Computed example of a mutant assay.
Amino acid sequence: MNTADTLRAAFAPTGRLRASINLGNPILANRRPDTGEPFGVSVDLAHELAQRLGLPLDLVVFDAAGKSVEAVTAEQADFGFFAVDPVRGQGIAFTAPYVLIEGSYLVRDASPLQSNDEVDRSGTRVVVGKGSAYDLYLTRELKAASIERAPTSPTVVDVFVETQADVAAGVKQQLEADQKRFPGHRLLPGRFMVIQQAMGLPKGRSAEAVVYLRSFVEEMKASGFVVQALQRHGIEGASVAPAAGA
């Protein structure tokens, strides 16, 4: 087996490259309303990786980050696109991030809360998307407020409104879109976290595959591929991550 064949076998032991795509984060992936076809920055990167490896691509699509993580951890998919988190790192080998996204809080206009540091108080109910990066982060960081989990990130504000919780936490752009559906709400100023979006492989894959994927991500950032994909899909508010080690 030559080097290229060895690398292809490491990435795709089934002979087809299976990309786990999470539709729970609309900055990275969504479905076209007319065809239902997945599209977005992560889909573009998946196609580019498959082309470079010379492998046929299968998109394995999920509606929540947690399900996408489980698929790659269990090797039901060969790679995916995730927010970096130490819990997920137990089963996934991450690249450096390729995109940075802000996590924000949404409250009712009449809420007494005015800043992010006021959220972590006894009696405050915060709704998050189950298994999302900000769920994992806030589970560690919030000491007094209670966390309630919506099935997916796109349903956070629906659950927040239905249950009359105090705060909805999520990706800033998703919350801004939800404001249009639910008038009478506002975002707290600033952000409570920066979400580092990276690519990742199952932890058991070869070191050569991990090195290749990390190099791939660095090239995609440096070449302008990522910023062009963000522009092509009309994504605002997300920034290309700096080079690894920068």
Results as ranks from 00 to 15, higher is better:
Thr6Asn: 14
Thr6Arg: 15
Leu7Pro: 02
Leu7His: 05
Arg8Ser: 08
Ala10Arg: 07
Pro13Ala: 01
Pro13Phe: 01
Thr14Asn: 01
Leu17Val: 01
Leu17Phe: 03
Ala19Val: 04
Pro26Glu: 05
Leu28Thr: 13
Ala29Met: 04
Pro33Lys: 14
Asp34Ala: 15
Thr35Gln: 05
Gly36Pro: 02
Gly36Ile: 01
Ser42Pro: 07
His47Glu: 10
Leu49Pro: 04
Ala50Met: 03
Ala50Val: 00
Ala50Trp: 00
Gln51Met: 09
Leu55Asn: 03
Asp58Ile: 06
Asp58Val: 12
Leu59Ile: 00
Val61Tyr: 02
Asp63Glu: 14
Ala65Pro: 07
Ser68Gln: 08
Ser68His: 05
Glu70Gly: 03
Val72Ala: 00
Thr73Ser: 02
Glu75Gly: 04
Gln76Glu: 01
Gln76Arg: 08
Gln76His: 04
Asp78Pro: 00
Gly80Val: 00
Phe81Leu: 04
Phe82Ala: 01
Val84Gly: 04
Val87Thr: 13
Gln90Trp: 11
Gly91Pro: 01
Ile92His: 00
Phe94Gly: 03
Thr95Arg: 03
Tyr98Gly: 06
Ile101Gly: 06
Glu102Asp: 14
Gly103Gln: 07
Gly103Ala: 07
Ser104Glu: 11
Tyr105Leu: 07
Tyr105His: 11
Val107Gly: 11
Val107Tyr: 05
Arg108Pro: 01
Leu113Asp: 07
Gln114Trp: 12
Gln114Cys: 07
Asp117Lys: 12
Asp117Arg: 13
Glu118Ala: 14
Val119Asn: 04
Arg121Thr: 10
Thr124Glu: 07
Arg125Gly: 04
Val126Gly: 02
Val127Leu: 09
Lys130Val: 09
Lys130Thr: 09
Gly131Asp: 07
Ser132Gln: 03
Tyr134Pro: 12
Leu136Thr: 06
Arg140Leu: 14
Leu142Ile: 06
Ala144Trp: 07
Ile147Tyr: 04
Glu148Ile: 14
Arg149Phe: 10
Ala150Gly: 08
Val157Asn: 10
Val161Leu: 11
Glu162Asp: 15
Glu162Thr: 14
Ala165Leu: 06
Ala165Lys: 08
Ala165Cys: 11
Ala169Asn: 05
Val171Ser: 11
Ala177Leu: 14
Gln179Ser: 10
Gln179Phe: 06
Gln179Tyr: 05
Phe182Cys: 10
Gly184Lys: 11
His185Leu: 11
Arg186Ala: 13
Arg186Gln: 09
Pro189Ile: 09
Phe192Cys: 10
Met193Ile: 15
Val194Tyr: 13
Gln197Leu: 13
Gln197Gly: 10
Gly200Lys: 04
Pro202Lys: 04
Val210Asp: 07
Ser215Gln: 15
Phe216Leu: 02
Val217Tyr: 02
Ala229Gln: 06
Ile235Ser: 10
Ile235Tyr: 09
Glu236Gly: 12
Ala241Gln: 07
Ala243Glu: 11
Gly245Pro: 03
